[in-house]
Computed example of a mutant assay.
Amino acid sequence: MGKLKIGVIGCGTIAKFRHLPEYDANPEVELIAVCDLVSERAEAYGEQYGAQAFTDYQELLKVEELDAVSVCLPNYLHAPVTIDALNAGKHVLCEKPMATSREEAEQMIEAAVQNGKKLMIGHNQRFVAAHKKAKELISSGAIGRIYSFRTAFGHAGPEGWSVDGRNSWFFRKSEAFIGAMGDLGVHKTDLVRFLLGEEISEVGSFVETLAKEDTDIDDNAVCILKSESGIIGTLAASWSYHHADNSTIIYGEKGILRLEEDPEFSLIAQYTNGEVVKYELDKIQTNDSGGQHSSHVIDAFVSSVVNNEEPPVNGEEGMKSLNVVLAALESSETKAIVKTKETTALLQ
């Protein structure tokens, strides 16, 4: 098998910092096609990476030698474009949140199965060194039974880094569907599920627009989550933190794990016997870092295709993380605790 032939659909910030350079750096990949509605943008990246430039993704999907695509588009386009790509016989890496409804997510999963293709969702928090190490410590029983957690993901908002600034699709509800809760909160729902090794069963939340003017999209969310075994915790997502926060704390029977809270040590384990272990691991990846740290998402996707293995964050995993977000939106609307398995179709 020769190099994997890849196309990137959507050439905004996430493609600029993550997908394009990380595919380019992967020795098993040849980046052969890029697509963006803004022709100048598509042509500029096409020239930079030696790829054919398109403004219509349907035309890109007609390229027969293309093996796989990344879908880096506004949230409302994730499902239709992913399904079209799968039906065209391409493997797909889709940005998060994978869809805007459970129904869409199920259709994406079904399309992957029907076409025998890989579907992976771009949840990078699982690949962060501190998070992987914390998962090991929790799984090994090092901090005993987990009682509680708190996790937050906030920054000053997409206008600071989105290619279109304040005019970005992130602020248009018809295109984004969810604001901070979809942009950042879904990352943390995925991380909590990954760390605890179990599903979130109940959600209570406030999802509000507080900081951004002239938009009906949420910019602050605070949720209370309860897991299947009864672990409770909070999740905050915000576009109004002027100093970014991407921290998580796990409270257990034998100790506390502090993840990405200390600027120097990305994981600190504080045990009840007085022992403190500080781990100096690879820093978390951010868009502000200009992409100098790999997200590992692209490499994991490529590896799953090349080795014909199930992607580490497949469609089912993406849907389970999306379901928590859908439940949070429903809870905020109905002012009631929502069971994730019973999330209604109200939000579709």
Rank of each mutant, 00 (worst) to 15 (best):
D299A: 15
L191Y: 03
I83W: 01
V63K: 10
F177W: 11
A328H: 01
A300P: 02
K173P: 00
R193Q: 14
R102F: 05
E59G: 11
L61N: 04
G10K: 00
V306R: 13
G291T: 04
N287V: 15
E280R: 15
G154P: 03
E198P: 08
S321P: 01
E198F: 10
E30M: 08
K212T: 03
M98V: 10
H293W: 14
S70K: 04
K90E: 01
N220F: 13
L267R: 02
Q348V: 12
P74R: 03
K3T: 11
L326P: 04
G154D: 02
I268W: 04
E310T: 15
L119I: 07
L93N: 08
F149Y: 09
D190Y: 05
G204R: 12
D164L: 11
L73W: 02
D84N: 07
L93F: 02
K133D: 07
K96R: 08
I256C: 08
F54R: 04
V81H: 02
R193V: 12
V306W: 12
I284G: 09
G116A: 05
S227N: 06
S227I: 08
L225A: 03
E310C: 11
G157P: 03
G46V: 04
I268P: 11
V324P: 01
Q348R: 14
I109S: 11
N26P: 10
L37V: 14
T340K: 01
D219M: 00
E22M: 06
L225Y: 01
K320Y: 08
S201M: 11
R126M: 12
L60D: 07
T209E: 00
T13C: 11
Y147R: 12
A211T: 13
A129Q: 05
I298A: 09
I284L: 13
S266T: 11
A327Q: 02
H19R: 08
G182V: 05
A236V: 14
V81M: 05
A15L: 05
A269L: 09
I231Y: 00
G154R: 02
M108G: 10
L259V: 09
I14K: 08
N115T: 13
F149C: 08
K212H: 10
K283L: 10
D245T: 13
S289M: 14
L281H: 04
A180N: 10
L86G: 01
S70L: 03
L322T: 02
E159M: 11
K335R: 11
V29L: 05
T344Q: 03
A111F: 06
G197C: 08
L61I: 09
A105L: 09
L195K: 06
E43K: 15
H296I: 10
G197S: 07
G233D: 02
G274S: 12
I217W: 00
N87G: 11
G179L: 02
G318W: 03
T189R: 01
S238W: 04
D84L: 01
S332N: 01
P311C: 03
L346K: 12
W239K: 05
A44S: 14
E333G: 12
G197A: 09
E342A: 13
Q114W: 06
V207E: 00
V297C: 10
E106S: 12
Q52V: 14
Y251L: 15
I178Q: 15
K278Y: 05
A269T: 07
